Amino acid sequence: MQQLIEPSELKKFSGMQRAAALMLALGKENGALIWQQLGIDEVKELSTTMAQLGRVPAHIVEHLLVLFSSEVSTISSLHGSFETTERLLEGILPDDKLKEVMEDIRGPSGRTMWDKLSNVSETVLAAFLKNEYPQTVAVILAKLKPEHCARVLSALPRDFAIDVIQRMLRMEPVQREIVLEIENTLKNEFMTNLSRSQRKDPHESMADVFNAFDRATEEAILGALDARAPDSAERIRALMFTFDDLANLMPAAIAALVKNADKRQMALALKGAPEEMRAIFLAAMTERAAKMLREDMASMGPVRARECEEAQGGLVRLAKLLADRGEIVLVDPKDDETMII
């Protein structure tokens, strides 16, 4: 007997997620004809959703596949992943099309080429596009998100931007071959060069390593590096983000750090911190929370300096994690006037 489904259960799955679950349940043999009817963009969108689907309870699958309930009734769950998606598409799509689909969905957050382009700075993108034919630029901008398209148009020379806008207004449906040619040009000439130009400075990578050292090791190795390569040592010091730099965070960022931090780790970190640093963190708490933190620090008694330093390093790593998520901004130690996310 099929398990009844609450409406709220089904609402958890978007239309695309339901389609992905159905295609997983159908498998190669039953789903081949459907896949063959889809365009490449539709295949990418559906495949991306399938690869990120995770587990779908069997009773949801049964509800979505009523005609095939006898086949899926013995399945405890489905699990969508990159591997299961790739195995499913093998033999259904030509090798070159399969490779293109999997390369796109294995990219950052499974984004398509156009999604990735929407994350490129409008200044950088405009500098590249101003040397292209206006019709090509019109096709590219028409594929971007409206807000990013607007920023790129604003960064283009005014007369050139007007020309592009007029072409966008008159634009007819573009042949798939032309779009593919433009995509390939962007991948080979723009995104590849962009990736190379944005390659991380090895001093930045080493600064991350030094941030993970305990203080004694950090000072000892930096001291030795000073003797052998003073310029590199100075560069690494400038790039390091330390516990002391947390004092430069905006109050909202300190509040987010307090909210997400492990309370014992924060107590340990502040126990070994100067009074000024303690005051900054305590000011971001409620009166009750600040009182409890003071009591926690007092009840610890004597603690090893190394434990405090490790806890402080943990808060620094948490701050960087929150910055990577875009939840806070960090003051860039390279430039007091700039902010980075």
Rank of each mutant, 00 (worst) to 15 (best):
A323Y: 09
G314E: 01
G326Y: 07
M191K: 07
W114F: 14
R196K: 14
V164N: 12
P251L: 04
P146W: 11
A261F: 10
D95M: 13
P134C: 03
M23T: 05
A247M: 10
A138G: 09
D159P: 00
V43W: 04
L153T: 12
D159G: 05
K291W: 03
F13L: 04
E83I: 05
D41Q: 12
E234F: 10
D95V: 14
E177W: 06
A126R: 02
L64M: 09
T112R: 12
D296G: 01
T85P: 00
E327P: 03
I221M: 11
E307Y: 04
R111L: 12
T286I: 06
A284K: 02
A238L: 09
A319N: 02
V179M: 15
A267Q: 05
T286A: 09
L186C: 08
M339Q: 14
R235L: 03
E45W: 08
T84K: 00
E132F: 01
A207P: 03
I140H: 09
T49S: 11
W35Y: 10
A279E: 15
P157C: 12
L89Y: 07
M191D: 06
E103G: 04
M113L: 15
M206A: 15
S70A: 01
R158I: 02
G223H: 08
G107T: 04
L22K: 07
E234V: 09
A279Y: 03
I340Y: 14
M23V: 04
R167K: 10
M292S: 06
T286N: 14
R228P: 01
P108H: 14
T338S: 13
Q175I: 08
L93Y: 06
I340W: 11
K11T: 08
K271Y: 07
T49P: 01
L22Q: 07
E45F: 02
K116M: 07
E276W: 13
L330Y: 14
R158E: 11
A283N: 11
V124F: 02
A255N: 04
I34T: 02
A229N: 11
D262V: 03
A311E: 02
A290C: 08
K11Y: 10
D95Q: 15
R237V: 03
A305C: 04
S14H: 05
R264M: 08
A238R: 14
L315I: 08
L180N: 15
E327Y: 11
L144G: 05
T242G: 09
L78H: 00
F241P: 04
S118D: 15
D244G: 10
K143Y: 13
D226Q: 05
K130I: 10
D231E: 13
S77N: 10
M1L: 12
A247S: 13
A51I: 00
M292F: 06
P134H: 05
G91C: 09
F243T: 02
P57M: 05
L156Y: 03
M23L: 08
L46H: 10
M339C: 07
D245P: 01
F210E: 02
